[in-house]
């Protein structure tokens, strides 16, 4: 038994360094540090006001939902470039159906969600059954949905529907006088649901198994095809939901809404500690990824003298740093 005892101690030692929660903790730590920095530097500007923190959720709720969908795809080792276009398309579709066709939002929302999910399903089907790289298929999705935006209308459609207005303006009060928007609450609910699905259902575990080793998953008798297609369907659904939240946030449909948002979503997932090669990561990490990206924007706003493009540069630097961390972590695991 001495051999096995040896395994045990070795395993214990490695676990600390290899713990898959480590990247999430790093990101959470980074968030706290950045927040502390902001609190220290902009103390007199009301940075510590609880609402500043809540606004992170209000301003980034749609991104969180999109990033949660992207997390599913990336966990299987795939990628979804169509996120931004599906969001843009959903804003257009919603605005057009509500404003130009006079349909009630209650009917429009399920339609939009269904279209997004079906788009994701189609992409997943082609990716899996015809063995075409996800990158290319979702790129076609990117073109397609952005194109559909323009087909609906080349002009922006602003929404004056009272239901939309009411939903957008509703404050969900929190203790301490701060509040959240409906969209923020929905995004947090999506996060919680995703966490449950990934960690407490067989489907969720299959997502991890495929990302860990698709060939093994197949040999272990898991339904790989269905799971892979489902993951893109989830991403399509989340993108459409994100589009609805974005519509609430901005109260218009515009063919140029959310251009390039897929990059933000992917960046948030990576910064949140999910490996782009799949199989490792947590949806909670994605939350921190979104919060860190959101906080960068907030800090830049508070600084006042810095311009918006620093957001992109900082995101790039963060991406680089986290990809390096991932690289060294996987490198160590291999040896």
């Amino acid at each position: 038994m001495s051999v096995i005892d040896g395994f045990r101690t070795r395993a214990e030692g490695l676990r600390l360094l290899q713990d898959r929660r480590l990247p999430v903790l790093v990101t959470a730590g980074l968030f706290v540090l950045m927040f502390g920095f902001g609190a220290f530097r902009y103390q007199s500007y009301g940075f510590l006001d609880a609402q500043v923190f809540m606004n992170l959720f209000i301003d980034n709720g749609y991104l969180l939902v999109a990033a949660v969908g992207a997390t599913f795809v990336i966990l299987t080792g795939g990628i979804d470039l169509s996120v931004g276009s599906v969001i843009g398309f959903t804003t257009m579709l919603t605005a057009w159906l509500v404003e130009k066709q006079g349909l009630p939002l209650l009917l429009v929302a399920p339609i939009a969600l269904g279209v997004g999910a079906f788009g994701g399903y189609l992409m997943g089907y082609v990716i899996h059954h015809f063995e075409i790289e996800p990158f290319i298929v979702t790129l076609a999705g990117l073109f397609f949905f952005r194109g559909l935006c323009l087909v609906i209308s080349k002009e922006s459609i602003s929404i004056t529907d009272p239901t939309v207005d009411r939903l957008a303006q509703t404050h969900v009060p929190l203790p301490g006088g701060s509040f959240l928007s409906i969209a923020a609450v929905i995004s947090l609910a999506v996060l919680a649901l995703a966490f449950y699905v990934l960690h407490y259902t067989r489907f969720g575990r299959r997502v991890y198994a495929i990302g860990g080793n698709e060939q093994s998953a197949l040999l272990m008798g898991l339904p790989v095809a269905g799971t892979k297609i489902a993951v893109y369907t989830v991403s399509g659904f989340c993108s459409a939901l994100s589009g609805l939240l974005f519509t609430l946030y901005i109260q218009s449909g515009d063919p140029l809404h959310a251009v390039g948002l897929e990059l933000d979503a992917i960046a948030a997932v990576v910064v949140g500690g999910t490996l782009l090669t799949g199989g490792s990561g947590y949806v909670i990490g994605t939350l921190f990824g979104v919060l860190v990206l959101g906080l960068i924007k907030t800090l830049i706003q508070f600084e006042g003298t810095l311009s918006s493009w620093w957001t992109k540069i900082a995101t790039g630097v963060l991406l680089f740093a986290f990809i390096l961390i991932q690289r060294t972590m996987t490198g160590r695991r291999r040896t």
Binding site: I79, V270, T277, S308, I313, A314, G316, L319, R327
Partner: peptide, 20 residues
């Protein structure tokens, strides 16, 4: 680093640099 990921960094940051 995988090419898609490696070049994603500059794809994101590069626009910022151009605006800078």
């Amino acid at each position: 680093i995988q090419p898609i990921i490696a070049t994603l960094i500059l794809m994101v940051a590069g626009r910022g640099i151009a605006q800078l």
